[in-house]
């Protein structure tokens, strides 16, 4: 149990998607202007990452990994180079399905953050979650924890950044630094803070 918990913390804070691995920065910066949109994006990220990483694990192990077709008499078949297309397909389908389900059963939630869902199809962090799962050879449980954990890490980071940016929008910044420039510098400072989590994980 404690293993799972520490792995969750690792995925959420040490390997934080936007701040340590630079993943999903486009949406991270574009949607952190206001806290409401940041919360919506965070929730959508947790949902989509939590679903797609384990799902892609099943597809990779069942269809694409070297030796997955032994039962069909094809022990040498290695389809792992198709992983990219398969993952993108799964992610696009999941996002579409999620959007349709939300629209049908929870129209209020859909109205609140449904607009962010289509964006997530082309979100680097989501695809990266699945690619890391393959590269680091996680098991099914690990990949589920990793998916949810990195979603939570993303949500925490984007909500923090949006809170700071909301305050800073009243500040009198130099013209060239307004908007994107200061957002990068803030992200750098947040990233310094999150770097200390890496120390924390290494110490026990």
């Amino acid at each position: 149990m404690s293993d799972a918990w520490s792995f969750f913390l690792f995925a959420a804070f040490v390997d934080n998607m936007p701040l340590t691995l630079f993943l999903g920065l486009c949406t991270f910066l574009a949607l952190s202007r206001r806290t409401e949109s940041a919360i919506g994006l965070g929730i959508a990220m947790i949902g989509v990452l939590g679903v797609t990483v384990p799902l892609n694990y099943l597809i990779y192990q069942g269809l694409l990994a070297p030796g997955a077709w032994v039962w069909a008499g094809q022990p040498d078949l290695d389809l792992s180079y198709l992983a990219l297309i398969a993952f993108i397909g799964v992610i696009a389908a999941t996002v579409q399905l999620l959007e349709m389900l939300l629209d049908r059963y929870f129209p209020a939630i859909h109205a609140a953050f449904g607009v962010f869902l289509p964006l997530l199809t082309v979100q680097c962090a989501i695809l990266a979650g699945s690619l890391f799962m393959v590269e680091r050879q996680y098991t099914l449980t690990e990949s589920a924890i990793f998916g949810v954990g990195s979603g939570v890490g993303f949500a925490v980071a984007v909500i923090m950044l949006s809170a700071i940016r909301a305050r800073l929008s009243y500040a009198d910044l130099p013209a060239g630094l307004r908007g994107l420039g200061i957002a990068f510098i803030l992200t750098g400072l947040l990233s310094l803070g999150f770097a200390s989590f890496a120390q924390m994980a290494a110490s026990p």
């Binding site: 691995l21 130099p174 013209a175 060239g176 630094l177 307004r178 908007g179 992200t187 770097a195």
Partner: peptide
Amino acid sequence: LAPSAFFLLGGLVWVVRSVWSEQAE
């Protein structure tokens, strides 16, 4: 490390937008 990349890109944005001031938000 990661933070320096953010600082550098932030600085680069600042430089570009100060020189071409019509880009400032």
